[in-house]
Amino acid sequence: MQNDTPELPIFPLILSHAMRPLPLWPLSAGLSRLAGHILHRHPGINNRIDYYQDHVFLLDITDLPLFLTLEPRKARLRAFRRSAVVPGHDAGISGPLAAFLAMLHGQEDGDTLFFSGALAIDGDTAAVLALRNALDDAELDLAAELAELLPPIAGLLRAGLPGMQHLTGLCLQRGSAASERAW
């Protein structure tokens, strides 16, 4: 079988180490605010997640020192230390941050990442597919969502984004082809 795994960058170790002391409560509060903002602006996400809105989704971003859990109906995105036990969940996705961001921004296909071994799933497979399909249809741009949520830093984001993308190799915003929503 041909192994043609997409080459994905690993989140810089120094930045990962720097994240370790981050206090979990304010981090979770900030992440949940972002999740709530996105789910409010894109109601189609929860419509498509449908039966699985009450599920707990584990986002095991393997090159970060944290686990994240997403509860769509509560718009809750919480952080847990990787050194602790894996948080309880109904469905889980694991892989490097680059895979999550590339999939979210429409740069990489979720199935391709999964079948190449870059992403792994566990638990309720149907729920994972519902979440993936819902996010794919939403055509999210995380940088734009952050700028919308925090107008004072919008200028800083715009100025710093190209450098951050270059430094980390991560896909931090939606591709140019999809940036103009047609309808």
Partner: peptide
């Protein structure tokens, strides 16, 4: 039809 918009575009 079960694949993403990235797959479709490519």
């Amino acid at each position: 039809r079960q694949r993403s918009r990235a797959y479709v575009a490519q």
